[in-house]
Design a protein around this nucleic acid. Structure first.
Ligand SMILES: [Mn+2]
Ligand SMILES: [Mn+2]
Ligand SMILES: [Mn+2]
Ligand SMILES: [Mn+2]
Lengths: 217, 217
DNA sequence: TATATTATTTAGACTTGTCTAAATATAATG
DNA sequence: CATTATATTTAGACAAGTCTAAATAATATA
């Protein structure tokens, strides 16, 4: 149906587009895909012909409804594969992304349907990212960065914003895992760093930067 | 490392080459890959540069040791994925080949090692085809076509030669499954068809063509 | 052996996806 | 407003992989 390259363009546009339906610039897309802006301009013209995106010259691109559904389908596959790798094969959460980038392009409706069932219809991947259903519908629980809480505030750690292996292994190291209940003990005025309390009574200190990349609900 | 196309060429050459180290002709390869002979000639020259095959103009190609190992690695992946699809996801043995053709090209040593472990280090795929180990070594149990047995002969059904969905679903229909013990009750002189006895006392008749595609040991 | 048939390679072209260098449009600055 | 800097597109090229049509080599046949 769509080439792997096309799928990667759609996915990149989807994530850059965010919730808003804003235009995505050629150069942002180029940066995200690791290609030159000129290559993006060429490719974009081809994808427009398939009615997956609209393109305003010198302004940027935007997914059509058809393109958005295609992008979500790929994200669904990516996240289901990440669940498989972590929950069934014993991968760590910082090791799965690259492999899932390949697996997400395997074409088989049946495969994904059965994988979903095999995994017990998970609603979030190992990073807490929501998994859309087969119709592309997300049932996203509202979440916000830990950094927005003040002293005394509580939340459950449900996801990360930064997905880099560096950040993920850091969280492993300080013993913070998805699902943990967090209570903010203190917020340092000077650098906005937080002292947080986990349910195992352990108290740890995290920088503002870290707290800003932890999603709680 | 190698492109998907290159991998498919290596795999096709390996299976056409068989046990013997005979040369594989351009046109046989073209037929197997579903491309024109002229395309094969072009592609072959590129693969030669990577020292994966040797090529004698007007004669054919042959895998180098390096090429043979590469081909076996892909076959290993293909068969492990087929095990996964059947044993874990509940696919039927006639439904897995196409999906495995895609999954076999996913690049990750770790993925295959962990999948192998997850599956319990299987030695054969759902069609009875042997799975080489990580070093490319097969521990193939000797087998032969059921048709070579005469009346009174016994064997265990361990594999198929014909892998077509049509043949596989036919076997399902007559109730013949991998691992079944088979006793040859009678061989019809006229058309060489066999009457065979399964361990559940059921007696069934199979044509010579079918018996020739059933491997027993 | 000469001729017809089949197998294989060469030549030239096309598609996909990418690149660099140059041209053009937009935004920022004085 | 004129100039400079940045963003974007166009032009021309390239590699991978394929194709068709034509040329050449090998095989079969008379
Ligand atoms: Mn990921
Ligand atoms: Mn993820
Ligand atoms: Mn197969
Ligand atoms: Mn098989």
């Amino acid at each position: 149906m769509h080439s792997i390259t096309e799928e990667n363009y759609l996915k990149a546009i989807y994530t850059l587009q965010g919730n808003g339906d804003g235009l995505v610039s050629t150069s942002d897309l180029a940066k995200a895909l690791g290609v030159q802006p000129a290559s993006v301009t060429d490719m974009v013209k081809k994808i427009v012909k398939k009615k997956l995106i609209t393109y305003l010259k010198m302004k940027g691109v935007r997914l059509t409804e058809k393109g958005k559904l295609a992008a979500i389908a790929i994200i669904r596959k990516h996240r289901l594969w990440e669940c498989f790798l972590v929950n069934k094969l014993g991968f760590k959460w910082d090791e799965v992304h690259e492999v899932a980038e390949q697996l997400e392009h395997v074409q088989s409706e049946q495969l994904i349907a059965r994988l979903d069932e095999f995994l017990g219809f998970p609603v979030a991947d190992p990073h807490g990212d929501p998994i859309p259903d087969a119709n592309g519908v997300f049932s996203e629980p509202p979440s916000f960065p830990l950094a927005t809480l003040s002293a005394g505030g509580k939340g459950k750690f449900v996801g990360v914003i930064d997905h880099s292996p560096a950040f993920l292994t850091y969280l492993d190291k300080i013993g913070l895992a998805l699902g943990d209940l967090i209570k903010v003990k203190m917020v340092e005025e000077f650098d906005k760093s937080l002292t947080i309390l986990l349910k195992n009574e352990k108290s740890i200190m995290v920088s503002f930067k870290v707290a800003n990349n932890l999603l709680v609900s």
